[in-house]
Amino acid sequence: MTLDDLRVFVAVCRAGSLSAVARELACTQSAVSQHVKRLEKETGLSLLERRPRGVVPTHAGQVLCDAAAGSIAGLELALRRLGDLANGDSGSVRVTTGGTTVRHFMSEAIVAFRQRYPKTSLEFRTETSSRGCFDALTAGDLDLAWVTIAGAVRGIEQRPVVDLPWVLAVRPDDPLAARTRLRATDLTDIRIIRLPQNSTSGARLDAAFAEQGIPNSSDTSVADWDTALLLAELGLGHAVVPALPGRRISGDGPLRLIPLPDLPPLTVGWAVRRWDALTPLARTFADTVATNCAEVAGHRAVRP
C-alpha cells in the first residue's frame, strides 16, 4: 500500500469513474485500476462496486477513503507548512472560490497581501458553487475556500466573515425604483431571475421565499450573482441578490438596489480543513481578507 495508491483510490471514489481519473492523471485506465487492485489485495476486501455508469465505494471502500483522505490532506499540509518555514515568505497560498469572489471580496486584500509578501505565490481555483469548493478543499491540495456558510460539513471547519443582506435589483424606470425598502410580500407579483438551485445561496433564497409564501416560478435562471444583475439591467426580470461589500444601494447607475430586510442575510466566509494546521501565510491571507471585508461592510461584518 503506497501513498500513490491511496491518492488514486480517493480520487476514484470522488469522481465515481476510473476513466475520469485516468484522464486527469494522464495515464491509462488500466494503471488506475492497478492502484485499486493493490489495495484490495492488501486489505482482502472489495473496495469498489462496478456499475453501468461508473463505480462507487463499497462500505469497506468508504471507510478506507474517509481515513485516507484525512491522512493525505494532513500530510500534504504538513509538508507545505515545513516548506513555508524553510522558505520564509516565498511559500504559497492556494484558494478555491466562486466565479466572482475575488472581485467582490478579495481585490483590495490581495493587493495589500502582495505588497506585504511579494515573494509569496497566490493560486486561485474557481468552482461553480460552495459545494464544489468544499469538495476541492477536501481533496487535499488547497488551503482555503471562500464559501456561503453552510451547516456542518464533515472534515471542514467554517469561519463566518460577513453577513450580506438581500436586495432587489431594478432598472431606474421600474415602478419599484423609488422605494427605499421592500417587504417580502412586494415580490409576489414580479418575475424574479432565479439563482442556481444547486448553489447554497439559491437554496437559502428559495427557503426564505417558501417561508414567506412567495412563489418563484421564473423562466430565467443564472449561474452567478453578476449575471443576475446584468439580466436585470437588460430588463429580463428582477434580481434578488446579496448586497456585496462596497456596492452602493442607490445612485445614478443602470440599476437601483432596494433592501429586502424581511429576508435573512446570507453569511459568507472561510472554510478550511483545520485552522490550527494552516500555514502562517495562509492564515495571514485569510485574516487580511476578513479585515478588509469588515472595514468595507461595517456593521454587517460577523465578529468571531
Results as ranks from 00 to 15, higher is better:
L281P: 03
S221C: 15
F9T: 02
E24K: 12
A208C: 10
G246Y: 02
F209E: 04
D141A: 11
V95P: 03
V111P: 12
T284V: 12
R50W: 04
Q29V: 05
M106Q: 00
V161F: 02
N292Q: 14
R51G: 12
A232C: 03
E233P: 12
D163W: 08
F209L: 07
D262Q: 03
A271E: 02
I149M: 06
A286S: 10
P245N: 01
P259V: 03
L176M: 05
A78Q: 15
A232G: 05
P175R: 00
C293W: 03
T267F: 03
E233D: 14
R38T: 06
S201I: 08
R154H: 12
S17F: 08
K37E: 09
R171P: 04
L79F: 09
D276S: 09
A60R: 13
R179Y: 08
V12R: 06
A239R: 01
R183H: 11
A26S: 15
V93R: 04
T180Y: 11
A178E: 10
R273V: 05
L82Y: 09
R159Q: 11
R131Q: 09
T58G: 06
I249K: 15
G246R: 00
V32T: 15
R300Y: 04
S221L: 14
A15S: 14
L39A: 01
T188K: 08
S129T: 02
V147M: 04
D262Y: 01
D224N: 13
A60L: 06
A69E: 04
R181D: 12
L75R: 15
S129W: 00
A15I: 12
A178T: 15
V272K: 05
L195C: 08
R300W: 05
Q197E: 15
P242F: 01
A109V: 08
N198I: 09
